[in-house]
Design a protein around this nucleic acid. Structure first.
Lengths: 316, 316
DNA sequence: TTGAAAGCGCTAACAG
DNA sequence: CTGTTAGCGCTTTCAA
């Protein structure tokens, strides 16, 4: 007990004893056994992060920032990649529950709402970007991109575009339907009629962006394209560039997120820029917030996206 | 005990009992307490990953692949960012030891060799890319980039470059000194004299690449540049592009790693391409390998880098 | 096929 | 200020 007390900084230990204990502990390279602490219910300080992928500058930056923030609070981050697969997500949640993670930050997989996919036990759930109703007492870290999207659409319309394509996440995703609605609002404000053929949504993926983008331009005659989704924008851009479609002369393009290379590509890719670091900081805050102020507003935080105009959204 | 046996698939349980137990467990949303298992010394199935940063396509892809590989072995990945800081690294190793991680995959921080920074306890250590002698019984997952670097230098020389700059990691890093030696060999094979002014090494960082690159071109008259280090290439490229130096007409450029946007930038950035996925797979293998075949060779695996010629290394 | 005991490392609660 | 006891959830060993 004296040893335990000395090491954990209890005041009820003779100063000299403490010194001796610490010294010897260091000599032996002793480290506290987290499992033993955990088994008593003292918490291990583990936070889970469930992402579709890390191969995406937005997610990577988010994970990086979050890990750094958490580390200063003595928390460790376990990363699970779900590839937006329900089964994966289920397994990951299970694993995290086993190690008694204090919280999970997750980009919920589409459809995660149906069935008891998300048995999250004691863990605090923080839904990232998208939300699914199936996590009732969860926290939320969201992006408010409505105004940025509207602005992007209007900008395209102002430079003369009338056939503006939209590539985004499935509307069964909260984020997907909100972004699409913003897009349509934008069109309406600009007095352009929405055209069903120029709206592609689906489970977001590289492939979807890759095929969708060039199809919309070549087959459906889009002269401008807006991407709304992290997984999609990479695919779309690759699709366009590979088909040698020059920006903005052959297609105007607005991406999503702001990967560092956007500045240099084709003289600058316009984009809906998301303040990742801020989002990660807010998330860290949600994780650490006490269980006191559980008002609805405190549980939900959102950061505002911004439209960044670069060369790729120039006029026809 | 019967419950425990039923759940863990022991054959010594009546089939009916097992069914009942499993059913009820599912109803209750029971999950095994990993801490309790761990405290008995059965291992928790956690692997640590220490990286300088995740905001770098190479590291992100590595982490992604590794996490995916490990997941199929029932292992979870804890990520720690060290920012190449010794103190960070020490803290991370400690944390991982506390949770009884089975292994750590780490890009050792420069200087980690001196002092008892790396108290790794029972964990299996896998050094990634760089090596430090201070981890004596460690495993190694390395990149063999010598030939690729030599090839790159020769290619530049063949297109007429005589003032070829080198930007790379400090030579106190194993990787740094090996890459530099490859660079010099390349020059010699091509009959070009190495010039001290055109060789910049240091603790790899974005800033170093950023400043080093344009300095070497504008101040020291380099007509071509080779980057050898993940942290450096991004900085270097940004430095050049920001100063409006066009590739390859004003400077020929060879990067390191092969981020997806290299294909599209400036008509294509030449690079030393590292097979990340393969490296991650080898690493996963090193983690899971039995403690039997501990011959020196089995502990050390390396993948071969490849020189990818694109527009940016064209002639003057 | 099932159960009882014991112990993994730690600390809260209660002596001394 | 230091020590003893007990119990967290699990599985190994031994017994029924």
């Amino acid at each position: 007990m004296t040893v335990s007390r000395a090491l954990s900084g209890s005041p009820h230990v003779k100063e000299e004893t403490r010194k001796l204990v610490k010294l010897r502990a260091a000599e032996l390279g002793y480290v506290k056994n987290a499992a033993a602490t955990a088994i008593r219910g003292d918490g291990v300080g583990i936070v889970g992060l469930l992402l579709p992928t890390l191969v995406n500058e937005f997610y990577a930056r988010f994970a990086d920032t979050l890990a750094t923030r958490l580390e200063s609070a003595g928390l460790q981050l376990i990363i699970h990649l779900t590839a937006d697969k329900l089964e994966q997500e289920r397994r990951s949640l299970l694993k995290l529950r086993e190690v008694q993670a204090a919280a999970v930050v997750m980009v919920p997989t589409p459809g995660s709402g149906t069935g008891k996919n998300g048995h999250t036990g004691e863990m605090r759930v923080i839904q990232l970007i998208r939300t699914e109703k199936s996590y009732p007492r969860s926290y939320m870290a969201l992006v408010d991109d409505r105004q940025a999207i509207v602005k992007a659409v209007r900008r395209l319309a102002e430079s003369g575009h009338r056939r503006i394509g939209y590539l985004g996440g499935a509307t069964l995703l909260s984020s997907g339907s909100e972004r699409l609605s913003a897009f349509i609002s934008g069109l309406q404000e600009a007095g352009v009629d929405p055209q069903p053929k120029l709206i592609h949504t689906g489970i977001p993926s590289f492939a979807m962006g890759y095929e969708g983008a060039s199809d919309m331009v070549k087959r459906d005659g889009a002269t401008a394209l807006i991407c709304a989704g992290f997984e999609v924008y990479n695919g779309a851009l690759n699709g366009l560039l590979e088909k040698d479609l020059r920006l903005p002369t052959e297609v105007a393009f607005v991406g999503y997120g702001d990967p560092s290379y956007y500045r240099w590509l084709e003289g600058g890719i316009s984009t809906i820029k998301i303040p990742v670091e801020r989002l990660a900081s807010e998330t860290a805050r949600l994780i650490q917030t006490g269980t006191k102020g559980q008002d609805r507003d405190v549980r939900k935080r959102s950061v505002r996206a911004e439209f960044v105009k670069r060369r790729s959204c120039g006029s026809l």
